[in-house]
Amino acid sequence: MNIKKIRLHIISMSLKKPFVTHLQRMETREGIIIEAEDQRGAVGLGEVVAFSTPWYTEETIKTCYHMLKDVLIPLVERSPITHPEELSKLFEPVRGNAMAKASLEMAIWDLYARQQEKPLWNLLGGTREKVPAGAVVGADSIAGMIAQTHELVDEGYERIKIKISKGADVEVVRALREEFPHLSLLADANSAYELNDAEHLKSLDEFRLKMIEQPLGIDDLVEHAILQNKISTPICLDESIVSPHDMKSAIQLKSCGVVNIKLGRVGGYNHALEIYRLCKTNEIKMWCGGMIEFGVSRAHNISLASLEGFSIPGDISSSSKYWEEDIIDAPIVVENGFVKRFDRPGIGVDLNQKRLNEVCNYREEFLL
């Protein structure tokens, strides 16, 4: 692939509105944008979707930067590849660090597609011209969540995910369901519950939720299987699925009916596509999850979600939901509940260099 250099940009942008869960209140989003450039000057883009602190997974912006600079980029330098599929084997000796691996793999997949002068969705086997979009609501109060949901419904979103936790669940869901009786709602618990909360979680069945996402432990599969037998609301696994092996185990145990596939969480496209195929074969519903990303990662999510089989609207909201101005040259726009795919080579967007410079706190370049 003749990768000549890799650039890392640490950026920080203020959210238009605070994003609130029981684990974290976020007003500013930090990230790392990756550029992989070949000898002809073509540039592929990737993004680290870890957060500044380890509230979602153990990875952070700082740990990912270390892994990229000191481990992963040197691996690519020592062992040049001819196709992005080779990265899985190359990164195999490195335990964990899925988000760091995914960010570099994303950039190299994008570069490869640009070298082939084809859209990335085309190389992945995507067929959809537009993908269904959902959005996440996180606020300090029920009134705030209702207000956010009204705004999103007015913008055309047909699926809304609400954050719940102990002490802020049944009342929240009831209020949203009463306000939006026909809206597709799902609840995300971010592992706020234990198995002995099963009877309480069963009380959510009456609200016709599309699913409840990751109610139990972040590394659990067994207790989710037990819980799924006790409640009728489908369980969606998120944090528990970090590898194809986890997906195989979840299928054998019948731990879930739905899976949220996030490129960053599972280590990039190669693992995501393997999980996708396992889900299709075993009739597990899928959707493409989001991480309050910048435009680079959102464009990658659109490429992935263009595959048939992502039957549930994903977290692919408009750039304007979170940012006054995104860092890409063609903002992500949701129209009537859908996002059109980009038909330019690669992920279909480039960096807005002026905006990138405004929000960049540090950059470093590595020659290969």
Rank of each mutant, 00 (worst) to 15 (best):
L87C: 07
G134H: 08
N97E: 00
L90I: 05
S103L: 03
L176D: 06
T82L: 00
Q115K: 09
I164F: 00
A100L: 06
A135H: 02
K101C: 11
F91N: 04
G96L: 12
I164K: 05
V137W: 03
K89W: 02
T149W: 00
P132G: 03
L120H: 02
Q115M: 08
R159K: 14
S79K: 10
A133C: 02
A143W: 05
E92W: 00
R128N: 13
M99W: 05
R177S: 11
K101R: 05
E77K: 15
N97H: 12
A102H: 08
W109Y: 15
G138Y: 03
V94S: 06
E77N: 07
W121M: 05
I108Y: 01
V173M: 08
G134T: 14
A100Y: 01
A133L: 07
P132H: 04
H83T: 11
S103G: 15
A107S: 04
E86S: 05
V172P: 04
K101F: 00
Q116H: 06
I108H: 07
L124G: 02
L124M: 13
R114M: 13
I162K: 07
S141Q: 06
E86I: 05
L87S: 06
I160R: 13
P181W: 10
W121Y: 15
L87I: 02
L90S: 09
Q148R: 13
H150F: 09
Q148P: 03
K101D: 07
Q116R: 11
S88W: 01
A143G: 15
G138D: 00
A175I: 09
H150A: 12
E179L: 12
A147W: 02
I146N: 02
G134N: 12
A113K: 05
L90Y: 06
L123E: 00
L185Q: 10
H83R: 03
K166N: 06
H150K: 15
L176E: 10
W109M: 10
R128K: 13
D140Q: 10
E105A: 07
R128W: 01
E158C: 11
H150T: 15
G134E: 09
L183D: 08
H182R: 15
A135I: 15
L152S: 11
T149S: 10
L152F: 11
R114F: 03
E129V: 09
E92V: 01
S88D: 08
K89D: 08
R78P: 04
V170A: 13
M106V: 08
L111W: 07
V153M: 14
L185K: 11
H83F: 01
V137E: 04
P132Y: 01
E155S: 15
G125R: 05
E155R: 15
H83C: 03
L87F: 01
P132R: 12
E171N: 13
L123W: 00
Y157M: 14
G96S: 10
P132I: 06
L183R: 04
I146L: 13
G96I: 09
G144T: 05
E85K: 14
Q116M: 03
V170N: 03
I108W: 02
